[in-house]
């Protein structure tokens, strides 16, 4: 496996999980993101606010290595996204927990089996992960629905299952694309609070959302995205100022 170049690795070791510099990205002939500069750090929650069709989902695709930059430089977890081999990209993806706006599951499998899939993919045996996954299931509030097939879960339960799956492998970076969409305000806040909790163990959390009220839930570095351009509004408030 090729080693990341030294400057990228140093950046990562200094706690910079994501560093985008002048990145353009898009699909086919359409350019969605233009000259994006963005940074996310370990132990911080970064909130990217913006209206619909501003490029939030495209940005999360870029951060989870599903989309490559057309120009500029994207360093994710110490790896240059544009030049990493397929194996290295897969390795980086396994260290990213992704919560999609419409999470996909193996619908006929139970929530428990879906949540434990990243651990199985990492080669761990059920006896090694069963207890951890049960704790995770309790943590996200899915205890009663854990053994139900995912196709029988409600929208909010699916979102919680997606969060549990994203957390299962103790990721370094969590990406959540509109995690409060189609949820009641109470459920939405609970979901964001769950995600934000992960900053306490040093995980970086990036949330892309239309909801402007999320900073009330936890301290966040705030970014704004409009027409594919990203600007920083403010840095994360120190932990003691956090609104719990």
């Amino acid at each position: 496996m090729p080693r990341p170049s030294t400057p990228d690795l140093e950046l990562y070791e200094r706690g910079v999980l994501v560093k985008l510099a002048g990145v353009d990205a898009g699909y086919g002939p359409a350019t969605v993101l233009m000259a994006v500069d963005f940074e996310a750090r370990a132990g911080e929650v970064s909130l990217i606010n913006g209206p619909a069709a501003a490029g939030k989902t495209t940005l999360t695709h870029l951060l989870r290595l599903a989309l490559h930059p057309r120009s500029g430089r994207a360093v994710i977890l110490g790896v240059d996204a544009a030049h990493a081999s397929e194996t290295l990209q897969a390795k980086v993806k396994r260290r990213i927990g992704y919560v999609a706006e419409n999470p996909t599951f193996i619908e006929h499998w139970s929530a428990f089996d879906n949540i434990s899939m990243p651990l199985r993919l990492a080669g761990r045996k059920p006896s090694q992960y069963e207890r951890d996954v049960r704790e995770l299931v309790d943590f996200v509030g899915l205890t009663d629905a854990a053994n139900l097939p995912v196709e029988q879960l409600s929208g909010a339960e699916r979102r919680r299952a997606a969060i549990a799956r994203a957390l299962a492998n103790k990721p370094h970076l969590i990406l959540a694309d509109d995690p409060t969409a189609n949820m009641s305000p109470a459920d939405g806040r609970r979901v964001v609070r769950l995600l934000a909790e992960m900053r306490r163990v040093g995980t970086g959390v990036v949330i892309a959302s239309q909801d402007e009220s999320l900073p009330e839930v936890a301290p966040m570095a705030r970014w704004r995205i409009e027409h594919g351009r990203v600007t920083q509004i403010d840095h994360a408030a120190p932990e003691e100022e956090a609104i719990e």
Binding site: K93, R94, I96, T104, M117, P118, L121, R165
Partner: peptide, 13 residues
């Protein structure tokens, strides 16, 4: 569906 999920979770081809 399974292939897409596995891919998102970092499974290689």
């Amino acid at each position: 569906e399974m292939v897409t999920v596995l891919c998102d979770l970092g499974a290689t081809q």
